[in-house]
Simulated scan of single mutants.
Amino acid sequence: MWVILIINVIIASIAIIAGFNNRAEAFSLFNAGVVFVAFSIVLLLGAIPVYRNFDTSSVLMFVAGILIVLGIIMLIVSVIARSTRKINLQDLAIALMVAAVCVVYFIHNASLNFANLLVPELALIVGLILLVYPKQK
């Protein structure tokens, strides 16, 4: 499991460096809210395979709960404030990749099987696709 964690960290680190290279844009509450909600969904889905391990699943669900509440609050405030409602796919991609690394780290004591790695690896792949997608236009 440690090998998979190290590989995911390397892939996510390279993608984060490439994604944040030469970036200058304003902060958006709507974008931040969407990123928080996506991050929390990955954490919640990652807690499903390890639901019998109370320590791991409770940490994942606690952090996901805090993030989803903050994300919903940010989305509500952005709707009330009528801020721009544009989602930056690079931010979403980076959040998915970091969430995948977090899930793999928290479930590293679990057995190495397909069910445990499905959510984090799928999040990493979707993050890589979203990171490359805007650059094709």
Rank of each mutant, 00 (worst) to 15 (best):
A15S: 15
F62A: 13
A26R: 13
G127P: 09
V98Q: 00
G127A: 00
P120M: 01
N21H: 15
L67F: 14
L92S: 09
Q136K: 09
V132K: 09
T84W: 00
L5T: 06
Y51K: 12
L118K: 13
A38Q: 04
G19T: 03
V37T: 10
K137P: 02
L112D: 15
S111G: 14
L96Y: 04
Y133V: 08
M1D: 05
V98M: 10
A123Q: 07
M1I: 06
A18V: 02
F114W: 14
A123H: 05
V63P: 02
R85H: 14
A32W: 05
A95N: 05
M61H: 09
V132E: 02
Q90Y: 07
V119M: 01
Y105R: 03
Q136S: 13
T84E: 14
D55S: 09
R23Y: 11
V50F: 07
M61K: 13
M1C: 04
G19L: 00
P49R: 09
I7C: 13
V126M: 06
I4H: 08
V63S: 02
L89C: 01
I76W: 11
V9Q: 04
Y51T: 03
L124G: 02
L75V: 06
I17N: 08
P134H: 03
F114G: 02
S111W: 06
S13G: 15
C102P: 00
L130P: 10
A15D: 02
A93V: 04
A47Q: 00
L89M: 12
I73R: 08
I17L: 07
L131G: 14
L124Q: 14
N113A: 03
R23G: 01
L89T: 03
V42C: 05
L45A: 11
S28E: 10
N53K: 07
R82W: 06
L44I: 12
I17A: 15
Y51L: 09
T84K: 11
M74W: 01
A100C: 04
G33S: 08
A100N: 01
L92G: 10
I80M: 09
F114Q: 07
